[in-house]
């Protein structure tokens, strides 16, 4: 008892009380659900009382097998892959280009363009989704625009299962390029201007400044941007939900929407939904570890 009291110092008490509220809330909504869904994904629990329910049985990996045999799972995964590709190969390069020309003052009105390009990021994805859905719909300006070039052009974007994902990808590119621009811009500003000045005086061309000074200094930020793009693409739910709700025929679904439909549409299938949840958490960790490994192997030029 005495030892316990000696251990229980003011310092320890203060630490515990200061840390507790944050840890409790965070663990309850982020750490616990991860473990919870892993557990439930291997049972037959499908609604009702969870704790002390005698009917819940362990069923192993059955739901995972079902998930891998579901064609909508693969359609959704493919769409997540497309979103990831448009982020890594579209948003990041464009964001970098904009940040670079604005930072080096290679274009006029840089401040104005910066404000406008970032603007979509602050608007609610729901408003953005509905607005662009109307924009691309048969009654929207896009149809009108196409018809001025091709009279009689018919807008099938909403019905054609092959093309329906294109507007979604376009909106994602339009919406988040500004985010990467802002991140690159903030980090470009950290590079010592006298370094560039000196290089210029020594006769380096703009191209050399870019490839020898700017890009190496930003290699860490580029990795961070890729990680953001990967976790961001797995987050995509709101925009797709507001724009297409996964239609036509669930061809524009993404993993989060696939999970949502499984759990909340028609007859709920919670075990399958929990399996999807676990798969998504695992996938994001695997992808991020892969980026880290790539960085460790090929990067490392960062000071």
């Amino acid at each position: 008892m005495k030892r316990l009291l000696a251990w229980w110092t003011e310092e320890r008490r203060a630490y515990l009380l200061l840390v507790l509220p944050g840890v409790l809330v965070y663990w309850a909504v982020m750490a616990f659900p991860t473990v919870f869904s892993l557990g439930l994904s291997m049972t037959n629990y499908n609604g009702g009382v969870i704790f002390g329910n005698p009917n819940i049985q362990f069923v192993g990996l059955r739901h995972y097998l079902r998930m891998f045999n579901d064609r909508y799972f693969w359609i959704s995964l493919k769409n997540n892959g497309l979103i990831m590709a448009i982020s890594v190969f579209g948003q990041i390069p464009l964001g970098f280009l904009f940040a670079y020309v604005i930072h080096r003052k290679l274009i006029k009105f840089g401040d104005f363009f910066q404000t406008i390009i970032y603007l979509p990021c602050v608007i609610s994805t729901i408003v953005v989704g509905r607005l662009w859905q109307s924009f691309f719909s048969p009654y929207g300006p896009f149809t009108k625009f196409m018809q001025t070039f091709q009279p009689g052009w018919e807008n099938e974007l909403a019905y054609d299962p092959q093309k329906a994902i294109l507007p979604v990808l376009f909106v994602i590119l339009w919406m988040y390029t500004g985010q990467y621009m802002i991140i690159f811009l903030a980090n470009l500003q950290k590079i010592d201007p006298s370094l560039i000045e000196a290089a210029r005086i020594d006769g380096a061309s703009e191209w050399q400044v870019l490839t020898r000074i700017m890009l190496p200094a930003l290699s860490g930020v580029i990795v961070t941007a890729c990680i953001l793009a990967i976790s961001g693409s797995l987050k995509s739910f709101d925009l797709v939900y507001a724009m297409t709700a996964g239609n036509p025929a669930r061809r524009t679904s993404v993993l989060a929407l696939y999970m949502y439909d499984t759990a909340f549409k028609h007859s709920p299938n919670y075990p399958l939904a929990n399996s999807i949840s676990v798969f998504m958490v695992l996938l994001s960790f695997i992808l991020i570890v892969l980026v880290r490994i790539t960085e460790a192997r090929f990067g490392g030029r960062e000071e």
Binding site: L234, S236, M259, Y260, S277, M280
Partner: peptide, 9 residues
């Protein structure tokens, strides 16, 4: 961690 992946739990 994406909260989207935890909506069902």
């Amino acid at each position: 961690l994406t909260l989207q992946s935890l909506m069902v739990p």
